[in-house]
């Protein structure tokens, strides 16, 4: 356990690692960073630690859909950055019950992690399915797009249509939009106002309610940061390394960088709260 108080911005942290997938196929298809989340979950699926992974998959434009992955192939299809929130709470429940999954890993955003972890810790309803959720993996998040508004903006200003967009990457301080074989760089400030209002008042960057937080830092390109928040998560990461799915190195030196981002989000939230509430 590294020296972080439990009430700080990053929540409880047991260990911070930099990881990347050993599997070449995952590395090639990686989108955001080292593909460590895909590799970790592949390990969990192949060893039967979980029987399904619920994740969001981008379907068209910026829209997404909740899917259940049972193997590496399906995981790879869902991998990559998401730019809109997928309202998968209800959908997920249906999926889990349909397939009668007993041990699920979830890949979600901090807000969803909070909801599912609260459901797991505090099952208020008979219809809750918290006991079926084994791992909650939260991705670092700076906000999701009000994507109808954002797409409309892209169409009006740059004449880019939703169906032309192949991919979007977050670079240092601009968004790279890949469409029709070309690229467009949009400064972050320009697109900020197209984030959802609710995201502008959110204070959680890493997902403090999750079991594992994952994301990337600029100083370590090609690597995924994995933050284990409890012994159970720590064990999963360690054994994935032992079994040869993950390449792991100590990552406590990037905590400062994550903390900086988290503070940025907090400051933004405080500023926005002052005039929204």
């Amino acid at each position: 356990m590294i020296g972080l108080a439990s009430d700080n911005l990053l929540g409880t942290v047991f260990g911070v690692y930099l990881a990347r997938a050993k599997d070449e196929e995952i590395r090639r298809r990686k989108v955001a960073s080292g593909g460590a989340v895909t590799a970790l979950l592949t390990y969990a699926l192949e060893k039967g630690i979980v029987d399904g992974v619920v994740a969001a998959k981008r379907t068209k434009g910026l829209e997404g859909q909740a899917v259940v992955a049972h193997n590496k192939k399906e995981l790879l299809e869902a991998a990559g950055n998401k730019w809109s929130i997928v309202p998968f709470a209800t959908r997920m429940k249906a999926k889990i019950e349909e397939e009668n999954l007993k041990k699920v890993a979830l890949v979600c955003l901090p807000c969803q992690a909070q909801f599912f972890a609260q459901m797991r810790d505090f099952p208020l309803l008979e219809s809750d399915f918290g006991e079926r959720i084994k791992y909650i993996v939260s991705l670092f998040c700076m906000g999701t797009f009000a994507f109808n508004a954002f797409l409309n903006y892209l169409r009006m200003k740059y004449n880019i249509k939703a169906e032309q967009i192949r991919d979007i990457h977050l670079k240092k301080d601009f968004l790279e939009i890949v469409y029709n074989g070309t690229k467009l760089d949009l400064p972050i400030e320009e697109v900020y106002s197209y984030l959802q209002t609710g995201c502008l008042v959110c204070t959680d960057y890493t997902g403090i309610w999750s079991d594992i937080s994952a994301g990337f830092v600029e100083s370590e390109p090609g690597w995924t940061v994995l933050m284990a928040r409890n012994p159970k998560a720590e064990e999963l990461i360690k054994s994935a390394e032992k079994e040869g799915y993950l390449e792991l190195k100590e990552g406590s030196h990037v905590v400062g960088e994550i903390l900086k981002k988290a503070r940025e989000k907090l400051a933004r939230a405080q500023q926005n709260m002052s005039y929204l509430l």
Partner: peptide
Amino acid sequence: DIVLTGLCIGCGACELSCP
């Protein structure tokens, strides 16, 4: 408090939680 103020992010947690 959440929807009319524009703070809702559309995650669907409420829909799932309503008994």
